[in-house]
Nucleic acid binder design. Structure first.
Length: 300
DNA sequence: ATAGGGTTAG
């Protein structure tokens, strides 16, 4: 028992694939591969290093995969270029009749549908989730919303949301971000008011999606308001939020405010730099400066 | 023992 615990923690801490191979060999010689928790963790570890063929080999070595194994192999493929493989595994799981899909299975296979725009499969799985009693499952519903959004199924997406009896912060954030990504920026901003009335609160995720909507429609005043909400609630250490603010201010023509946010960030990533560079590039196009007077203002 | 959501550009 202690050994299992030890192996699991080794696998969790492992951060290079060579060490993983060693632990793997150790597990095999110890005869621990037959322990579901171990084999499952091993499948996930290989998947985390993007060594999907290794995950597959391990999966197929299992005589009788349990639900967690199916879930892990489906999730491993759900977001990558071979998302079709995730759907094939899902089909295999359903036809094996040995383990039944749960909310985690549906969640992953729906992601795969969104990844490769498998519209019909998504609708089929939607039906299966209802028949299996997952209509009010928020994990499943969030992924249904996102999958329908991925191929422009606005009406179906909204229907899933409206028919959900209990909606939490994540459900609302997902719907808002999907509206915004589909180009319905005004609807996303209106939904924020409804969200506030619904009493689920909001967080940095909400603000980021909303700022992206502001950036696209040039809603500077709302953007400023969202910035204030971010400050008031202590979200300003969030890199995503800083990046979204830079983009919003730059696109709304407030380069000075974009710079102010940029300079005040504790951490910056490629998004931060790209957004501020884009903002400055566009501003230069508008003002046509005769000399590069702003060349040093970033790093003052 | 697997477990939901966020940003730019091209």
């Amino acid at each position: 028992m202690l050994k299992i615990f030890h192996l699991l923690s080794l696998l969790t801490q492992c951060n290079d694939v060579h060490t993983l191979h060693k632990i793997h060999a150790h597990i095999v010689t110890d005869g621990c591969f037959t322990i579901p928790a171990i084999s499952n963790k091993l499948i996930n570890s290989y998947a985390n290093f993007n060594a999907l063929p290794s995950s597959q080999i391990l999966f197929h070595q299992l005589g009788n995969p349990s639900t967690i194994h199916w879930n892990s192999i489906i999730k491993a493929f759900s977001l990558g270029p071979n998302a079709l493989q995730a759907i094939k595994y899902y089909n295999g799981m359903v036809s094996s009749h040995l383990s039944r899909p749960n909310s985690i299975t549906f969640s992953s296979v729906l992601k795969a549908c969104g990844t490769i725009n498998a519209t019909n499969k998504c609708m089929e799985i939607h039906g299966s989730t209802i028949r299996s009693g997952f209509s009010s499952d928020m994990l499943v519903s969030t992924n249904l919303i996102r999958s329908y959004a991925a191929f422009g199924g606005l009406v179906s997406m909204r229907k899933v949301f409206d028919e959900l009896t209990k909606k939490d912060l994540v459900t609302w954030n997902s719907l808002i971000s999907c509206y915004s990504k589909m180009g319905f920026h005004h609807d996303a901003l209106i939904l924020f008011d409804e969200m506030k009335s619904a009493g689920v609160g909001f967080d940095g995720f909400s603000l980021v999606s909303l700022l992206s909507a502001c950036a696209d429609v040039g809603a500077l005043d709302i953007g400023v308001e969202l910035h204030g909400l971010g400050r008031k609630n202590g979200f300003m250490d969030n890199v995503y939020l800083g990046n979204a603010l830079i983009d919003m201010y730059a696109k709304c023509g407030s380069l000075d405010k974009a710079l102010h946010v940029f300079n005040g960030m504790k951490k910056r990533d490629n998004f931060s730099w790209n957004s501020i560079i884009m903002g400055m590039g566009c501003m230069d196009l508008v003002t046509k400066p005769s000399h590069y007077s702003r060349q040093c203002c970033l790093l003052e």
